Structures are given as C-alpha cells and as structure tokens.
Amino acid sequence: MTINWKKVWLIILIVILSFAALILLFFQTFGFYRVSGTSMEPSLKNGGTVTLLKWDHSPKPGEIIVFSHGSYHFIKRVVAIEGDTVEGKNNTVYVNKKPLKEEYLKTKPSFQDFGPVKVPENAVFVLSDNRTNSLDSRDMGPIVKDKIRGVLIAY
C-alpha cells in the first residue's frame, strides 16, 4: 500500500485552514476585557475578566456593555434606551417617570440629582453600579450605539 502524500498534505492544509478560520471567527464574535476600577462593584470586581458578544450593539436596559469614549474603554450598565427619559433624584433613578428596579445592587447608591435627559435616537444611557465616584452618562452624555463594543455575556 502506498501513501498518497498529496492527499495527506491536502488534508493537513484543510485542517489547519479550518482551525485558523474558527479562531478568527471566535475572536470576531467574542471579546475579553479586564475590569479596571471599582465603578461596577458589586457586580464586577476590579481585576476580573469579562466576556462580551461583539455583534450585539442594541443592548436592553439592565445589560452591561463595553463602549469606547475617547481613547478609553468603559464597562457600564444600560439603564435607558433611545426615546426614554431618565432622571435621578433623591438617590433614585427614574426611567419614564417610573423608579428603576435595580435588583443587581446590594445597597442603594447615593448620588447627585441629574436630568431629566431624553435619550436620543441610536443611543443608550449608562450608569455605573457604584455611582459615588464614577464616569458614566451623567458626565459623558448618552452613548451612541456606534461606540458600543459589545454586551457582556459572562462576568
């Protein structure tokens, strides 16, 4: 029995190219970021790693996103979407005049009043879970969806 080396090398080449294509697809679909800072505590810990789905640029309220602002990437929670009006008063966030239920927070954060802000088309309003000392839409304004890198799927 003779070995057809052309077929063997063709199979090896196909396996290598398939593996390379899968790796490329994986990294085009998923992103990995290291949490830097305490702005999302208690949900995300400083130094932890998060995984996001890069293709999702239409997050829903309550989801955590990664977005770029200037030369930095931020990880924040979406609290309002386009068309919503968001306001913070007396340490409570209101979306469309209804108090926001934030079960993900262990303690109610204290923060300065803000708004009301109507979220423009093609944008979201984000807040940190730890609102005492953090940059979010209260400072940066609503986040345009083009700046969203993805929605967290594992943290």
Rank of each mutant, 00 (worst) to 15 (best):
Thr2Arg: 15
Asn4Cys: 06
Asn4Arg: 08
Trp5Asp: 09
Val8His: 03
Trp9Ile: 07
Trp9His: 11
Trp9Tyr: 14
Ile11Thr: 11
Leu13Tyr: 13
Leu13Cys: 14
Val15Gly: 09
Ile16Asp: 11
Ile16Cys: 13
Ile16Gly: 12
Leu17Arg: 11
Ser18Gln: 10
Ser18Ala: 15
Ala20Gly: 12
Ile23Ala: 15
Thr29Asp: 08
Gly31Thr: 08
Tyr33Leu: 13
Val35Asp: 09
Ser36Asn: 15
Ser39Trp: 01
Glu41Ala: 13
Ser43Ala: 09
Leu44Glu: 01
Leu44Met: 04
Lys45Ala: 14
Thr51Arg: 05
Trp55Ala: 09
Asp56Ser: 11
Ser58Phe: 08
Pro59His: 00
Pro59Ala: 00
Val66Asn: 04
Phe67Tyr: 06
Ser68His: 09
Gly70Gln: 05
His73Phe: 15
Ile75Lys: 01
Ile81His: 06
Thr85His: 08
Val86Glu: 00
Asn90Thr: 07
Asn96Tyr: 12
Lys98Thr: 15
Pro99Val: 04
Glu102Met: 06
Glu102Val: 02
Ser110Asn: 12
Ser110Lys: 12
Phe111Tyr: 00
Phe111Glu: 00
Val117Phe: 04
Pro120Trp: 05
Arg131Asn: 00
Ser134Trp: 02
Leu135Gly: 06
Ser137His: 03
Ser137Val: 01
Asp139Val: 15
Met140Gly: 04
Met140Gln: 06
Pro142Met: 00
Val144Asp: 10
Lys145Met: 10
Lys147Met: 07
Ile148Arg: 04
Gly150Thr: 01
Val151Glu: 02
Leu152Tyr: 03
Tyr155Glu: 13
